[in-house]
Amino acid sequence: MTTASTSAAPGRATRADVAKLAGVSTAVVSYVTNAGPQSVAPATRKRVLEAAAALGYRPNAAARSLKTGATQLLGMVIPDATNLYFAELAVAVETAAVAHGFDLLVAHSHSSREREAQLMHSFTSRQVDGIIMLSTVADQSATTLGATKTPFVEFGCNIGTPGGLAFTVDHRAGAREGVQHLIEHGHTQIGLVVGPEMAGIAHSREVGWMDALAEAGLRRGPIFRADFSRAGGFEAGRALVESAAAPSAVFVASDVQATGVIRAAHEAGVRMPDELAIVSFDASPESEYTWPALTAMQQPIDEMAGAAVEAIVRLRLSKPAESRMFSTTLVRRASCGCPPTVAQ
């Protein structure tokens, strides 16, 4: 490679500077730095990359987006960054996005309608190529988004936003299977720990709990409502163990709540699963490391993330895309009374 110098300052070099140093055309530099649209011989590609590194050249993403109409960015809204289920899902979406040539911007809404609306406006003003929403409150913000031309998909539930696609699991069927598993262990009094509102995902999981009990001819156990958080689960768990009619088993609508329930049971001296068996929903990473480890309904996160990103790609190309509903899988661990498993 030639060692010709340039007057451009590091970090401010132009494509022409790189082309001159590498002995190629500016078009070839563009093909290398933008991964296409035409292929470049390996030796030439190496020469261009070495020249770019020597000059500190970085392609101007803003200028490129103005020219192509694409930013190669996706936006993702999650309600709670401390919930490992959402963190795991964000990683899966990022992996799928990178495979399609996109970077991912992740923002935390704190389950606030106002914050969600702000994030939607921020993402669309930055002209992201698509938005993935995990919303516990999305109604007005998603409806507003539906009026834009930005492709978007909903994760977790389908709130029926015009123009929106949903990628979710069958929460009702998953909850029913989880409760049925507790019934198979011989429990006849099964309580429920769930969110404070009978809406959306929480409602579907509550109905699944009711379905399983009705099918088995069992009366509904007590319901303990609390926030979808560790603190909420701890509050619900304390109410459960202090109840005069405490059930022998409980279905918990989320792993993050179940973590709090387990702490409350330990502090009260309640032996699990002998005195209180637990099945939860999500099978997030932390569920394998609670004590006892949580039996839980697992969502196919990687498959869901891949399908959601693929849908955005198709929508950007004006190709048809459809919503999808996935099935959950029961992961058996010690909290329900199944033999303990060793974490991998």
Rank of each mutant, 00 (worst) to 15 (best):
G217T: 13
A246Q: 08
S109K: 08
A138I: 10
M198E: 15
S327V: 03
G195R: 12
R324Q: 14
A175M: 06
E322S: 14
A343C: 02
S141W: 09
P151R: 08
R64S: 13
G23K: 05
Q127A: 15
T124V: 13
A202V: 10
E275N: 09
I132R: 03
C338K: 07
A293Y: 02
V32G: 11
G191E: 11
P339F: 06
I78S: 06
H185L: 15
R115C: 10
G156N: 07
S243G: 08
L240K: 06
R172N: 01
H187L: 01
V106H: 09
S335A: 12
H108S: 09
G130C: 10
P340I: 10
A277I: 00
V106W: 04
L105I: 15
L145H: 04
V28N: 08
A147E: 13
D170M: 03
S229E: 11
G130M: 06
A258C: 12
Y57V: 03
R238C: 04
A202Q: 07
R316L: 04
N34T: 12
L104S: 02
T136V: 11
Q189M: 08
E94F: 06
T33Q: 15
M198I: 02
R172V: 05
L240W: 07
I201R: 03
I132V: 14
A54N: 09
A231W: 00
R126G: 09
L192G: 00
G56N: 08
T188C: 00
T290E: 10
L145K: 04
Q298S: 14
V28Y: 03
D211V: 07
F86E: 11
T14A: 01
L21Y: 03
W209D: 03
S125I: 00
P79R: 06
T124K: 03
M272T: 08
D211T: 09
A166I: 10
F281Y: 15
Q118P: 01
N83R: 02
D255E: 00
S248E: 13
W291H: 11
A22R: 01
S284F: 00
Q72P: 00
A202L: 12
A97T: 02
G164H: 11
P292K: 00
A212Y: 03
A283F: 00
A99T: 12
L165M: 06
V93Y: 04
T143L: 10
R64K: 14
V137P: 05
R126V: 02
A311W: 09
M1K: 04
A70V: 01
S109I: 04
P151G: 06
T3F: 02
V28H: 06
A142E: 14
L240H: 04
L240I: 06
I262D: 01
F155E: 00
L165N: 05
T168Y: 02
V309C: 04
F102G: 11
L66A: 04
P196T: 13
V32C: 11
E154N: 02
A244S: 15
S112V: 00
R316S: 08
L74H: 04
M1V: 14
L315I: 01
V256T: 13
D103C: 04
F152H: 09
N158K: 02
V128D: 05
V153P: 05
G146D: 03
S7T: 15
I312F: 08
F86A: 07
V24K: 11
A81R: 07
G237N: 02
E197V: 14
V194N: 13
M325I: 15
S280D: 11
E114A: 15
